[in-house]
Amino acid sequence: MATEVQGTEAVAHEDEGVRRRDFINIAAVSFAGVGGLAVLYPLITQMNPSADVLAQATTEVDLSAITEGQSIKAVFRSQPLFVRHLTAKEIAEADAVDPATLRDPQTLEQRVVDGKKQWLITMGVCTHLGCVPLGAGEGENKGEFGGYFCPCHGSHYDTAARIRKGPAPKNLVVPEYTFTSDTAILVG
């Protein structure tokens, strides 16, 4: 520090020269800074999903074997995916609820594909802290509203997988998917 001050005093007369010299030093340091920042890019981007992980970002599910009232767990992006064949009773129960009374107001229609109201496809990840709720397997606890129940912190989901009771803030997420035929969907 002190030496720089001395140096500046020594050449204070040649104002022009000083400015040019300072400019070169500043330019050199700035270039070093830019270079340092550029190096950060590969160091940061390497943590993003790699090409092989991204390539497995879609999942096909065959619906033909799922009978009414049954649900299965598939895997989508390394997370559980709930595929549920709703019964008429379950659909009626879901429709009977006034969305305005819900924490995350949505109707069943908004959560299924038009004309395929019996197929409820959601992520099996509780929106509270990410546990896998029960209710998709045979004989599992479906909670007070007949949908899914998360045992970690006691969140209850209804037959449209909407949050009804407990700490979870949102309904179970509906991923993007399309019907590739009457009995098959492509998720992602």
């Binding site: 590969p42 160091l43 981007t45 390497q46 790699s50």
Partner: peptide, 13 residues
């Protein structure tokens, strides 16, 4: 080889 082919900037690192 996974680093060389699939990891972002893996070949460089």
């Amino acid at each position: 080889e996974h680093i060389m082919r699939d990891v972002n900037s893996g070949w460089l690192l």
